[in-house]
Computed example of a mutant assay.
Amino acid sequence: MSQPTTYILSGERITTSSPLPLYDISKTLDSLTHRTTSIQFSRAPNPKLDDGTSSITSSRPTYTPLYNLIHPPNAQYRTDIPSPFYLTNNSTPPTNSLGNIKFPPSFAPSLKKKYLLPFHKPTFTALLNTRSTSTTSPLFPRESESGPKGKGDLKVLFVAKPSRIGKAWEWLDGERRVVAKEEGGGKGERESRLVVIAKDAMKEEELEALLALWVLRLWWDISEERDFQNEAMMELTPPEAIVDMRMSKMNKRVGALGGFAAAGGAC
């Protein structure tokens, strides 16, 4: 049985026990706002050549783009998008990564929803379309039924589900076997960790898809924050409606004070 490997997301870099970066994201989690619609997930250059010398010759080496992580604007209110969260294969040529991947939650977010227990959170299913890339039109070609493990070219790659204990999330493969577990993460935390249990049993492209999906799931955490959602809602609301809401609140307050005064005030 292989030893677990812990991947650490700190800032824009994903590393393991070595400080050398393995992967890069184009935006840090704590910089995301409701206007952010995409993050690029890239592979770092191999830090060592065959002779043991470094292949990195500059402070900002060239990374290989693998996936675009997408969260369309106002995704929770739209029906014209593949999923509120998804990945597009951005490698050129797409030989070392998989196709486009839908990553829908099991239910839609809500401003009023409160997750009283960790397992009240949605489950995410990563649905891989093997014949699609970022240049495919449409991004997810029409799928047809082909059995419980997928629909046509759409294959269940991973499932992320909340643990019943604490804030951890578990990742399962298409056979419902646990392959990874999360530790920490979210806005305000310095580092997030993904402990991959079954690394040796996974192909490199599957591992890289898992890491990209992990970042996308952390993005969902941030998108669920009340301030994040309130900002998005205010941007959707016409200015005149904002004035009407403020006037309504003021009238209610004045009415309440008037009723209080009519009753003779406090005794």
Rank of each mutant, 00 (worst) to 15 (best):
S132L: 02
V178H: 07
T79M: 08
P162R: 01
P122T: 06
R13E: 14
S58D: 15
K149Y: 13
N129E: 12
T79N: 15
P238C: 05
S59W: 11
R43D: 04
P148R: 03
F41T: 01
D173W: 06
E182Y: 05
E224L: 12
A198C: 11
N46V: 11
R35F: 14
Q40Y: 07
E183Q: 12
K27L: 14
K155L: 07
L87C: 09
K155Y: 13
L29Y: 09
T37L: 00
R78H: 10
I25R: 01
P21L: 03
A266Q: 13
P72L: 02
R131W: 12
W214N: 08
L211D: 09
P73C: 05
E224A: 07
P93Q: 04
T36L: 03
I197H: 13
S26R: 06
P238A: 02
S91L: 07
P73I: 01
A209D: 11
A263E: 15
K114N: 15
L172S: 10
H120T: 14
G188P: 15
A262G: 13
G186H: 05
L172A: 07
G185W: 00
L172W: 08
W169Q: 01
K199W: 05
N100A: 03
T33K: 07
L218F: 04
K187P: 12
A168C: 09
L207W: 02
K113T: 12
L236G: 10
V243P: 09
G11A: 02
L211T: 04
F119W: 14
E204M: 12
Q76L: 11
V159P: 07
P141T: 04
P105T: 02
Y7L: 00
P61I: 05
F158P: 02
F107P: 13
N90M: 03
T6V: 15
K167P: 13
S18V: 00
M233K: 10
P239V: 01
P94C: 03
K149R: 05
S248C: 12
A263K: 03
T33C: 03
A209C: 07
D50H: 14
V156W: 06
P122V: 03
P238N: 06
E206N: 09
I56R: 00
A232F: 04
V159T: 15
K167A: 13
A263F: 13
V215F: 03
P109I: 10
P21E: 09
I8E: 12
E189G: 07
